[in-house]
Write a protein that binds this DNA or RNA. Structure first.
Length: 269
DNA sequence: ATGACCGGTCGTACCGGA
């Protein structure tokens, strides 16, 4: 089974490249993030024509996640139990009514319980979005703790917006005072790992740095100024079945790429 | 090639992205 996760930064803008990538890479299960369309506006027909069943959790202009599977799709969960919402501060009030955003979708795909996750960015450490990010990760950890014992294979996939170690950014000093590298964020990911999950190591197709994201600006990709923030966290059953894992840098090249590359994991389940 | 962002929106300027 080929499992992959890819933040496509708008499924609409990325559609030709997404379809080419499906044809070329032939994932059995693909987790998408930042689809940036409503569930209705997702390109269902084009994906179904390639043999995929879809679990789409979109909300419109921001966020949005999906799972495409050609090995079965059951027990779809749109969001997780206890998933916190977010509302930006407004005049005269700390928060409006929080809105639960389309950042998590789960499905059982054949032998594997799969989650496609788009963890909140956090923006800056003094922004309410940062507290939201930490709360979101803590509540997701609780949701995983509740369902994990009942699963055979399990994989939490997606854009975690956290670089787990200093080696996961091209220059740690650039990130002083920034989100994505703070200890609370790393602790929140570690708390997931501590449930018995493995942050699957990937080989890159070039360089020794399996980064998954490069900023569009400043020629970051060509300078390999990247970050490893897209992860697959797998339980022991899935981890033991891994035969290969790589970052498909080719998908970041050329005209009109996402700023993220897919992380691909082959499993013999 | 020695320089380099992109997507969405009804504010075609600005926010969000990381």
């Amino acid at each position: 089974m080929r499992l992959a996760t890819w933040n496509v930064n708008s499924v609409t803008a990325r559609l030709p490249r997404l379809l080419d990538w499906l044809d070329d890479s032939a994932p059995d299960v693909l987790c998408l993030q930042e689809i940036k369309v409503s569930s209705e506006a997702f390109p269902h027909a084009e994906c179904e024509a390639r043999g995929y069943e879809l679990a789409v959790h979109g909300e419109g202009r921001w966020n949005g996640v999906a799972i495409l599977s050609r090995v079965g799709l059951a027990e779809v969960a749109y969001g997780f139990d206890g998933q916190p919402g977010y509302a930006p501060p407004s005049d005269g009030a700390m928060f409006d009514t929080p809105k639960v955003e389309a950042r998590a979708v789960g499905a059982t795909c054949g032998p594997l319980r799969v989650w496609s996750l788009y963890v909140p960015n956090g923006r800056t450490v003094d922004d309410p979005h940062y507290a939201y990010k930490l709360e979101w990760l803590a509540r997701y950890r609780d949701a995983v703790a509740a369902e994990l014992p009942a699963q055979q294979g399990f994989a939490a996939c997606g854009d975690f917006n956290v670089a787990p170690t200093d080696a996961d950014v091209w220059d740690r000093s650039v990130f002083d005072g920034s989100t994505h590298v703070t200890q609370p964020e790393r602790d929140a990911v570690q708390a997931l790992v501590d449930l018995g999950l493995t942050d699957l190591p990937a080989r890159a197709l070039k360089h020794d740095t399996p980064y998954t994201y490069w900023d569009y600006r400043g020629g970051s990709f060509h300078k390999n100024m990247g970050m490893r923030i897209d992860l697959v966290l797998a339980n022991d059953a899935a981890t033991k079945a891994v035969t290969d894992a790589y970052v498909d840098r080719d998908a970041r090249k050329g005209t009109g790429p996402s700023d993220h590359a897919p992380l691909v994991v082959d499993l013999d389940l």
